Simulated scan of single mutants.
Amino acid sequence: MMTLMNKRYKITRLDDAGSPTLTLEECQQFFATQPDVQYMDAFSVTQDGVNMKIAGHFFMWHVGNASIPFRFYDGELYVAIAHDAVYDKMLHIARSLEAMYVEG
């Protein structure tokens, strides 16, 4: 089992000019086929009694007791990976969208 240290990855597909080509609509259609993923237009987190809400396009992967956000932003999907199961899910998503993944 691989243990990863909270690395951020992005799933992207680039055109000939190097611009991202993933669309929100394409991602929504794909994730609608995933029964363990839910679309949300905001992500909320509470820590030490402080609640923070971030507006955006989030595809929440529900696995066990955890919810892992995949955030769509500017033609790319971003995810922080701290466990090999999230890494495996990212690989599946990238393959399914015919995209690549890069750290950063």
Score class of each variant (00 low, 15 high):
1 M>E: 04
2 M>V: 12
3 T>I: 13
3 T>K: 14
4 L>H: 08
4 L>K: 10
4 L>W: 10
5 M>Y: 08
6 N>Y: 12
8 R>A: 09
9 Y>A: 00
9 Y>D: 01
10 K>N: 12
11 I>E: 00
12 T>I: 10
13 R>K: 04
13 R>T: 04
13 R>D: 06
14 L>K: 10
15 D>G: 04
18 G>T: 01
20 P>R: 03
23 T>I: 09
23 T>C: 05
24 L>Q: 07
24 L>S: 07
24 L>V: 05
25 E>C: 00
30 F>W: 07
31 F>N: 03
32 A>W: 04
32 A>P: 08
32 A>M: 06
33 T>L: 13
34 Q>D: 09
35 P>A: 12
35 P>C: 10
37 V>D: 02
38 Q>E: 15
38 Q>H: 13
39 Y>N: 04
42 A>H: 15
43 F>L: 06
43 F>C: 05
45 V>T: 14
45 V>I: 15
45 V>L: 11
46 T>F: 03
47 Q>F: 15
47 Q>G: 15
48 D>P: 09
49 G>R: 00
50 V>N: 06
50 V>Q: 09
50 V>Y: 07
50 V>A: 10
52 M>K: 15
53 K>V: 15
53 K>M: 10
55 A>S: 08
55 A>D: 07
56 G>Q: 02
57 H>T: 05
58 F>D: 02
59 F>V: 00
60 M>E: 02
62 H>C: 11
63 V>F: 11
64 G>Y: 02
64 G>F: 05
64 G>L: 02
66 A>K: 09
66 A>L: 13
67 S>R: 10
68 I>Y: 03
68 I>S: 00
70 F>N: 02
71 R>H: 08
71 R>K: 12
71 R>M: 12
72 F>I: 04
72 F>N: 03
74 D>I: 12
74 D>S: 12
76 E>T: 12
77 L>G: 02
79 V>C: 03
79 V>T: 01
80 A>Y: 06
82 A>P: 06
85 A>E: 06
85 A>N: 03
87 Y>P: 06
88 D>L: 08
89 K>Q: 04
90 M>H: 01
91 L>E: 11
93 I>W: 04
93 I>T: 02
95 R>K: 11
95 R>Y: 11
96 S>M: 14
96 S>F: 09
97 L>C: 09
98 E>K: 06
99 A>F: 05
100 M>E: 14
101 Y>L: 06
102 V>M: 11
102 V>F: 11
104 G>F: 12
104 G>P: 10
104 G>A: 13
104 G>H: 08
